[in-house]
């Protein structure tokens, strides 16, 4: 992989800096972000609190007081920018492994898929086709956000890509599988939400009292498979 991708490093606040590879969604860019994230997890910069990967950028949060202990006259953020830039000179070109492959069951039946009929209508495509297309690809988890355990996955086939709802739904049930643009995702908790809901999984993707608390992480791979409502109930009962 190209380790010489152009980037810029900037301060977000007194206690956060970001390394940004540009304003696009691209698997290779994201792998580069994750490679640096993994490197920093194993070799944290002095004073670092955490590093957070996004689609095409990585943000490093740090403790100002801890960094200032060795920053001298420089601001903590300047010092961290230099440390991160130095880190980029090191050999962290290797893409991380493709993470864990998760096969996640989804029931696409009517009560779980309030927005499927809209997609059938708008895209002039059959229900079975939508399900086949959604299950065909292996998706890459670009980043986590929005809610605890919510994975932004992509990219879905343009034949089933749908814009976000103009007016978000007041309540989307936990486990709901949605589409927004060329992304797909699973709601870990019930929440208001603007994604088009096409099914529901009985597998919890977030459980605060289970280790690990989140099923997915950035860099993981996800493939969906279709199940009946009977199978849905059966699998769900195993988790309760």
């Amino acid at each position: 992989m190209d380790s010489l991708l152009p980037y810029r490093i900037y301060a977000n606040s007194e206690s956060a800096i970001t390394i940004d590879f540009g304003n696009h969604i691209d698997r290779n860019l994201n792998r580069r972000v994750l490679a640096i994230h993994h490197f920093l997890q194993a070799n944290p910069l002095e004073g670092m609190v955490e590093s957070v990967p996004a689609y095409s950028s990585l943000t490093v949060y740090f403790d100002i007081l801890a960094v200032k202990k060795h920053a001298g006259e420089e601001t903590a953020s300047r010092c961290m920018e230099e440390a991160l830039a130095a880190c980029m000179q090191k050999d962290i070109a290797h893409a991380p492994d493709d993470g864990i492959l998760h096969r996640i069951p989804v029931c696409y039946d009517e009560p779980f898929a309030p927005d499927l009929s809209l997609i059938i209508h708008e895209k002039n495509i059959s229900r079975t086709n939508i399900i086949d297309i959604h299950c065909e690809r292996t998706y890459h988890v670009f980043m986590m956000g929005f809610l605890p355990g919510f994975a932004y996955m992509g990219e879905i086939d343009t034949r089933i890509a749908m814009p976000r709802k103009k007016q978000p739904a007041k309540r989307v049930e936990a486990g709901s599988v949605g589409i927004a643009g060329r992304q797909t995702g699973i709601y870990p908790l019930h929440s208001p939400g603007g994604w088009q809901i096409i099914g529901r999984t009985p597998v919890p993707v977030f459980d605060p009292f289970h280790e690990p608390v989140c099923l997915l992480k950035a860099g993981d791979q996800v493939q969906f498979y279709s199940i009946s409502s009977h199978e849905f109930e059966h699998i769900k009962s195993r988790y309760s």
Partner: peptide, 13 residues
């Protein structure tokens, strides 16, 4: 007009 891709945000942004 450019649409911004999501990235990490902080308290006070």
């Amino acid at each position: 007009e450019e649409e911004l891709i999501s990235s990490a945000v902080s308290f006070g942004s």
